[in-house]
Design a protein around this nucleic acid. Structure first.
Length: 885
RNA sequence: UGGGCUAUAGCUCAGUGGGAGAGCGCUGCCUUGACAUGGCAGAGGUCGACAGUUCAACCCUGUCUAGCCCAACCA
């Protein structure tokens, strides 16, 4: 029974149907396969507030392709999904929500109630992204899903924190940090964007105590002078030698500060004289440390000036700056103002100007951990693909700064450090204590800060697999899946995430967290611009999947993923691959009626004909290519290989050559051809399945035998020794070349595609002669010939003909009176010029004794053979040309 | 300013010490009984510039230029 298939592939229905079938059927769950080996990818947990964007789509496509590939190869496969609590982002969302709906701030709620509210928000709105990942065809085991704020994750976080604390690797310190006055929290260096801002150098005169002299100081931040605690010059600067050790007087506050010398100061920059504000400048902080200067903080948490700001108290820095400059001018201590553009740090999330601020923060000493993490990559224990990204990784870790892990937020893992109000004891604890560990007093409190989100992310590869609870670890098959197989992510979080997982895994478990790191490209728009809300150039994966089909979208993303750093996504490309998916569909639609009763491939391959052996050999080649390219994360090569095979080899030649057989009445050849077509089709959908899971599963349903399971768990095709029909591949290449040449000649003389012509082939190659005789009908069919004559090269050529010369034969189409001789001459001359240029190049080599002496013998031989072949072609061309004259 | 990466067809990118490739786009012809989301044929590149190593350089080395990324920062 032939079932009517629609003319175009309709993705939406198939996608929903198959996703449900897979998920409900438990096909995403790890199963023991023939490899008896685990394969695990931990999905980078997207933010709980997030919506799927193009970058996620790429993440999922590459990871899911790997997972599906390994699953089919028989590994026990786990794709582990999750979500990140995204401290700042989530807190912002909830704060915004309660402000809009209830006109309340988080302080109105209080900490406990606010956190409860945030959990409510999470349950209600969070994690939409998981359903969006399903649309893309992701095949993780959803039962493994974890949230970075889950109790299990918290258990891991607390255990690691307490261990590091007790080892002395976590410490609290006054330190100058990036303070975001809008978020009212410390943020990491990496969350600060430096933007160019138009400012000015203000040249200010500082009086010197007991003297009429002044020092001219240049600064871009005059308002911070109120917190100055020194003036600094270079120790070798002759101009200022006499002042070193004396005392300067800070304007307004009349603070007396020392004039010190430090070689941080450049003699030729600015005025060579620097005001030192250890409380509000990173470098000044370092100078202050070296010289034991006091630290003065002149800012409130919201960024406004505090009482140190005197009459400017309460103002924000820009306003204070303006007034201070005006006043300096009034009192004659402003020398000049020079316009100047400089870089100012802005909060990545809030956009606020970041204030360097000294405060008590928690730090992780990463010195030893980063050394170990560097070593692991140096000795290839963990390998990056592409390798060059290891440089980026090293550059971060070879000069590590201690990691500031405290954040002044409410939403996150609260730091498990406790204080006794009575005896001032401080200690870290995995469990919430009720009494002081030292004096047993009940008046204790927990540190109010929470941990940087990346702290919990750093533990993610093992906290998701049950660590530190032995029972959970067993249940989640920790031993099978850890270390994980590969981490797939973008280069932008090599430091944020990859480096920290490496550090923590080695520190906590003394083993690598993953064997490979595949760094994929960053998705940009077709002009290479970042996708952003403000540009409005983002590509919505859901809309894209709906418009082109998830398979076409996945294929596009995979085809653009290799070792490149950017992927410029052009909807035109997606449309192109939609055509490819449709092509596959139609190839199937055509062959389908013949496949339904088709048998299996014969055991004895000698029963197969030349074209059948050829397509099996090509299929074998493409299977080898798919395996090796997927193993190396060269998705671009995989896509190219299968695309080329399906279009060029399978559709254009094999199906075309099969038509006369399938429509013919020789039942034996028909049956053989149908069996090969069915086998080839099954292999094609299997090869493609990791990249385009939906349409392949849909086609598989029609192709599989009754006792076969779904495609998602079918064996992945691998190269087979018995299918290497090299000779058939070689002769088929000639067949293709001859047909294409004939078509080219036909076209050049304007023969209509429909019209049949006669062909005369001149050659002396015995093998070719018998091959042409054997495949006369196929040749006639593909080149639209009504007759074929093969003659020896010694025979006379017909007069008025369209001609093509190959290295091993000449093709003549006699066309009495029909052809434009000049066109032909022009064509042949062009070919001749090209051929002769090639010959000249090769001859130059052959006649060069140094080439003969130095080049490898096989290269010399190859060049000689080529030259001889081309010479033959040249002779043919010259003869043909002479014929026309 | 330092470090890294990149420079190949109109666009996006592969690639190799010995004959310049793919996809898309473009041009021409074709509504041939799976598919016009198609078929066939074709045009298009001094492989960023200069020098060096080599019998031989798009590939290796150096210098320069341009772009991107990271870091630092001009007080």
């Amino acid at each position: 029974m032939t079932q009517e298939l629609p003319k175009t592939y309709e993705p939406t229905i198939a996608e929903k149907k198959w996703y449900d079938t897979w998920e409900k059927g438990g096909y995403f769950k790890p199963r023991k396969g023939k490899k008896n080996e685990g394969y695990c990818i931990i999905m980078p947990p997207p933010n709980v507030t997030g919506r799927l964007h193009a970058g996620h789509a790429l993440d999922i496509t590459t990871q899911d392709a790997l997972i599906r590939y390994k699953r089919m190869k028989g590994y026990e496969t786990l794709f582990l999904p999750g979500m990140d609590h995204a401290g700042i982002a989530t807190q912002n969302v909830v704060e915004k929500m309660i402000m809009e709906t209830e006109k309340k701030t988080r302080h109105d709620y209080g900490r406990e109630a606010f956190i409860k509210k945030t959990w409510q928000w999470k349950e209600e709105y969070g994690g939409i992204i998981a359903s969006q990942q399903r649309v893309m065809g992701a095949s993780p085991d959803w039962d493994y899903s974890m949230f970075t704020m889950d109790p299990e994750a918290n258990e891991a976080v607390r255990k690691v924190f307490v261990n590091l604390y007790n080892e002395g690797l976590i410490y609290q310190s006054d330190y100058i940090i990036n303070w975001d006055p809008v978020l009212q929290s410390a943020i990491s260096d990496a969350e600060v964007d430096h933007k160019e801002v138009n400012g000015a150098f203000y040249h200010i005169l500082y009086k010197i105590k007991d003297s009429d002299e002044t020092l001219e100081i240049a600064t871009t931040r005059p308002e911070t002078l109120l917190a100055d605690t020194a003036v600094c010059v270079h120790p070798d600067d002759e101009r200022f030698q006499k002042y070193i050790g004396k005392t300067a007087i800070v304007p307004f506050c009349n603070r007396e500060v020392p004039i010190i010398a430090d070689d941080y100061v450049s003699i030729d920059k600015g005025t060579g004289c620097l005001k030192v504000t250890p409380g509000h400048d990173f470098n000044d902080f370092e100078i202050g440390r070296r010289h034991n200067l006091p630290i003065i903080n002149m800012l409130n948490k919201d960024g406004s000036l505090n009482e140190i700001g005197l009459e400017f108290k309460g103002m924000m820095p820009p306003k204070a700056r303006k007034l201070i400059v005006e006043k300096l001018e009034e009192i004659g201590q402003l020398k000049e103002v020079k316009k100047h553009t400089h870089q100012v740090g802005h909060g990545e999330r809030s956009g606020a100007i970041i204030e360097p601020l000294v405060s008590k923060q928690w730090f992780v000493n990463v010195k030893e951990m980063s050394r170990v993490a560097v070593e692991a990559v140096e000795k290839d224990d963990t390998v990056f693909y592409p390798k060059q990204w290891e440089n980026t990784y090293f550059s971060w870790l070879r000069e590590p700064k201690d990691w500031c892990v405290s954040r002044q937020l409410w939403w996150g893992h609260q730091i498990p450090v406790f204080y006794c109000n009575k005896c001032n004891h401080q200690w870290a604890s995995e469990e919430d204590p009720t009494i002081c560990a030292k004096c047993s007093d009940k008046d204790i409190k927990q540190d109010p800060d929470v941990l940087d989100t990346w702290f919990s992310s750093a533990l993610w590869p093992f906290s998701t697999l049950g660590w530190p609870n032995p029972e959970r670890m067993k249940q989640k098959k920790f031993d099978t899946f850890f270390p994980t197989s590969v981490l797939v992510t973008g280069f932008d979080i090599i430091f944020f995430w990859v480096a920290r997982m490496m550090m923590m895994s080695h520190k906590v478990l003394d083993i690598r967290p993953f064997k490979h790191v595949y760094i994929h490209a960053i998705v940009r728009d077709k002009f290479g611009r970042k996708m952003s809300k403000s540009l409005g150039n983002g590509i919505d994966p859901l809309e894209t999947a709906a418009e082109y089909g998830a398979d076409a979208f996945r294929f596009t993303l995979a085809a653009g993923s290799g070792y490149n750093r950017t992927l410029n996504l052009d909807p035109e490309r997606i449309n192109g691959y939609k055509a490819f998916v449709n092509k596959l569909w139609n190839a199937f639609r055509f062959t389908y009626p013949f496949l339904q009763d088709a048998g299996e491939l014969p055991k004895d391959f000698s029963k197969l004909d030349h074209h059948e052996r050829w397509i099996l050999a090509e299929l074998n080649t493409v299977a080898a290519q798919m395996n090796s390219s997927l193993d190396e994360y060269r998705f671009d090569e995989s896509c190219q290989a299968i695309y080329h095979f399906v279009y060029e080899k399978f559709c254009s030649w094999f199906i075309e050559l099969s038509k006369p057989i399938l429509y013919g009445d020789n039942e034996d050849t028909k049956a053989s051809r149908a069996a090969v077509l069915r086998f080839a089709f099954k292999e094609i959908v299997a090869l493609l399945h990791p990249i385009t899971p939906f349409i392949t599963e849909e086609l598989w349903e029609h192709l599989k035998s009754k006792d076969e399971d779904l495609l998602i768990v079918k064996d992945y095709p691998e190269e087979k020794e018995e299918l290497r029909f090299t000779k058939d591949q070689e002769s088929m290449n000639k067949f293709v070349e001859i047909v294409s040449s004939i078509r080219g000649v036909r076209q050049s003389v304007g023969i209509k595609p429909k019209d049949e012509v006669a062909l005369e082939v001149y050659t002396d190659e015995a093998e070719l002669i018998s091959y042409l005789k054997e495949h006369e009908s196929g040749l006639k069919d593909m080149a639209r010939l009504n007759s074929l004559v093969v003659k020896s090269k010694s025979e006379a050529r017909p007069d008025k003909s369209a001609v093509a010369a190959l290295t091993y034969c000449e093709l003549f189409i006699p066309l009495e009176g029909l052809i434009d001789i000049n066109d032909q001459i022009q064509r042949l001359n062009k070919d001749l010029a090209k051929t002769q240029a090639e010959i000249a190049k090769l001859n130059k080599k052959i006649t060069n004794p140094q080439f003969i002496d130095n080049a490898k013998p096989e290269i010399v031989e190859k060049v000689k053979v080529e030259a001889a072949e081309l010479k033959e072609k040249e002779d043919s061309l010259l003869k043909s040309l002479a014929n026309f004259k």
